[in-house]
């Protein structure tokens, strides 16, 4: 950690706070993944780590490298954009897949299908 010796204390404190905040939110999300009972409840847990959990660590990293190299280091923004675009896609697809599988097995406590005319085509839905 010798490279961080010339970092001002305020930057070190702020970066530590952001990184610890992000890491603990990610851990809470992972705990939720194990603790919650049903699949649809667990669908909410990973987005904790992917939104402010990741944002905390990425902001901390931006601050750390920008102050350290005394120029704006912004390439972490790419990961942030990528995560906000991809996490919804994954979770939406998983939610739909789970609903599709549960419906084909006639599981209980499922919502009624949105289309009532009998035909269940899912190719045109987002």
């Amino acid at each position: 950690m010798n490279h961080a010796a010339d970092l001002p204390v305020w930057a070190a404190l702020l970066a530590s706070f952001l990184v610890l905040l992000g890491a603990s939110l990610t851990l809470v999300g992972a705990i939720g993944l194990v603790r919650l009972k049903t699949f649809y409840d667990r669908l909410h847990a990973p987005s904790l780590g992917a939104t402010w959990g990741a944002a905390g660590i990425l902001l901390g990293s931006i601050l750390f490298f920008s102050v350290l190299q005394s120029r704006p280091v912004l390439h972490e923004v790419l990961i942030a954009v990528f995560l906000t675009v991809t996490t919804p896609v994954t979770l939406m697809l998983l939610g739909r897949a789970a609903l599709y599988r549960d419906r084909s097995e006639n599981a209980v406590d499922l919502p009624p299908p949105l289309r009532t005319d009998g035909e269940t085509r899912s190719g045109d839905s987002i």
């Binding site: 987005s47 939610g95 609903l99």
Partner: peptide, 13 residues
């Protein structure tokens, strides 16, 4: 979907 309290499951156009 990014809001942890809500999850988008299905949409019918």
């Amino acid at each position: 979907t990014c809001t942890p309290g809500t999850a988008w499951v299905e949409y019918d156009s």
